[in-house]
Design a protein around this nucleic acid. Structure first.
Lengths: 213, 213
DNA sequence: CCAATAAGAGATGAATCCTTCTCTTACGAG
DNA sequence: CTCGTAAGAGAAGGATTCATCTCTTATTGG
């Protein structure tokens, strides 16, 4: 009797299986929603992302989205923030400034996709409401963590490869500015030769010109 | 008799005024349409530009647009091409490479607005159909005319300031790549100090390192 | 002066999408 | 076991906008 009652309510239990939760809740669900929104943003872009496409990707309904974010803009901004928080960039340590720069610039594929996606959203009208520039969004995402590059330059400074007191800041940001430029203009990952050209024909010569005496 | 007949058909002629055309036609109208589309693109962006907003700005109806371009994408692409053809950039000639570079980078406000507008349109879904990258659109617009920069560098070569045979191309494009990067990230015109830093702390030192012997 | 053409104005159909709402049901706290 | 909460599914309202179509009338070539 008891068994039949249970079996009617939880048929799976009768088959000796652990109870499989069918519904996600709380943080698990929220993470899935933001992940789905981010993936949509990457694949189809802000303009073609719809609440229903996000819900479908997350295998849920739009009501679940509206219970958490009042509108599409806020959902997308939350997804961008989520992306920034869950995808830390690992910083290379090759022992030389040149090696670190090549590694950092060459491995930027993930950063590239994220960056282009965010800029795309920015230009697609997302930020027309909020009055933020793409640069400001980027700053927000990078806000708390220390900049990738600071560690690399600090180590180079300790090794005596550069003198952070005297080298002009434009030189230090230039390689990354150029990378961002290339990402936006080509949508592609940056060819290795381009990375080498930036490092060996632009960056290192300028660093050498300011070498600590 | 003759006079009264004419006066009935062309009342203005009687008042000694030239006949004022009320309707634009042909090229005059088409130019007005493309100009209106471009202005809309600049002011509200691709996402919020509608056929009706363009028609209203041009003081006409949407049918006039659809008689010329089959859809919104084609209209916008035509407007971008029109902008490229009707806004030639004047190339400075200050007598020195450094002066030319500062003038060119500093006066790029018009180019800036156009550039950001086009990239914005590109990211807003315009090019999702055509599979063009922002860089390719830029190339198309610049296609026929010689690059701004070629003239400046050719003159510098003749003056003996640079050796075009030996200087790496990355150096020559770098200042402009950085300008484009800044435009996209800040939406603003580039501060004079930034221009000076790019020229005096990045470009000129690298040029000097490759000075013809 | 006439007739063909296209401008000007705007109504309309169709599609898309944001947002709200309803209803059923799984989940988890007590 | 019971009950409140929120998930899941999807319908529906409302707004926007692309694209088509109709109708009147100015313009121009012949």
């Amino acid at each position: 009797m008891q068994a039949s009652l249970i079996s009617r309510r939880y048929p799976a239990a009768m088959a000796q299986q652990a109870h499989v939760r069918q519904r996600r809740r709380g943080e698990e669900l929220e993470a899935a929603l933001l992940e789905a929104a981010w993936q949509e943003l990457v694949e189809v872009g802000f303009a073609r992302l719809t609440m229903e496409s996000v819900a479908a990707r997350a295998k849920t309904g739009v009501a679940v989205l509206y219970r958490r974010w009042p509108n599409k803009n806020d959902l997308v901004l939350a997804a961008i923030r989520y992306y920034g928080e869950t995808r830390p960039v690992e910083i290379p340590d090759t022992g030389s400034l040149r090696g670190d720069m090549i590694a950092l610039l060459g491995n930027a594929t993930n950063a590239r996709i994220g960056f282009v996606t965010i800029i795309g959203a920015a230009f697609s009208g997302l930020l027309a409401d909020t009055d933020l520039t793409p640069g400001q969004v980027r700053e927000q995402i990078l806000a708390d963590r220390p900049l990738w590059t600071d560690q690399i330059f600090a180590r180079a400074h300790e090794r005596g490869e550069i003198d952070l007191e005297r080298i002009p800041p434009v030189i230090l940001t230039m390689p990354f500015d150029l990378m961002r430029h290339d990402m936006l203009m080509t949508y592609q990952s940056i060819p290795a030769e381009r990375v080498l050209a930036i490092v060996d024909e632009l960056f290192m010569p300028l660093v050498a010109a300011h070498r600590p005496k």
